[in-house]
């Protein structure tokens, strides 16, 4: 609805964003959120209410708080293991300097914790998005930008949905990119999955795998 792509293609541009919203589009978005939330409540609460699901989730694939610290785990997986780690709070930039988002920390560290952390984040996100949509500031969609600074070195951190995403850019003397490196949260968290699988049943592999929900491409494909 925002940019014609389910993956936000064309939205993030240098100097701003690719598409703007008007009140009609905001209303349509809010309506869609209401529908999605209703479905989400029904479907997801069924998980916690179903004993066979909880029997599989609880205690499976545990990742202790200490292990999460030692392995450098990030994102919801870290928060599920009790770490208060969220770039939106630890290194806030942009809107996150002004808006406080509650951090979802469950702490018990198994599949259930990772699932429940996500559920809490869904609820926090719904409220956050609604607040922001109802308070869209005026302003220019995209500002013109000039050439890149020469001999520059920039590191950015942003909280992606799996955890922190790091971009590093280095420019040469002419201001062209000489190196651009992206480190996905998945790169950090695969070791967490490997650790959580220790001593678990082989039939619980898919469950543990999906509880982390990492990107293969974001690691080594």
């Amino acid at each position: 609805m925002l940019c014609g792509s389910r993956f936000g293609r064309g939205m993030i541009r240098p100097g701003g964003v690719g598409f703007d919203v008007d009140t009609a589009r905001i209303d349509a978005l809010l309506h869609q959120l209401d529908l999605a939330e209703k479905d989400a409540h029904v479907a997801i609460n069924l998980l916690w209410d179903t004993p066979s699901v909880m029997a599989r989730f609880e205690g499976t694939g545990p990742l202790s708080r200490q292990a999460a610290i030692d392995l450098g785990i990030v994102g919801p997986a870290a928060r599920a293991s009790g770490l208060q780690r969220d770039i939106r709070q630890d290194q806030p930039c942009g809107l996150f300097r002004f808006v406080h988002l509650p951090m979802a920390v469950v702490g018990t560290g198994a599949v259930f914790a990772r699932a429940y952390t996500r559920w809490m984040e869904i609820l926090h996100s719904l409220r956050f998005v609604r607040e922001q949509l109802r308070a869209m500031p005026a302003g220019v969609r995209q500002v013109p930008y000039g050439p890149l600074a020469p001999a520059g070195f920039v590191v950015t951190l942003n909280e992606g949905w799996r955890g922190e995403v790091c971009h590093v850019a280095i420019t040469d003397e002419e201001g062209r990119f000489s190196r651009y490196k992206i480190v996905d949260a998945s790169f950090r968290n695969w070791s967490g999955l490997a650790y959580a699988l220790r001593g678990q049943q082989i039939s619980d592999f898919p469950l543990c795998n999906k509880s982390f929900n990492l990107s293969y491409c974001g690691f080594d494909l």
């Binding site: 389910r6 993956f7 293609r9 990107s215 491409c217 494909l221």
Partner: peptide, 12 residues
């Protein structure tokens, strides 16, 4: 076969 892309095609 997911041959090293961004996963959007896989998701769709």
């Amino acid at each position: 076969v997911s041959a090293g892309g961004c996963n959007a095609c896989e998701a769709d």
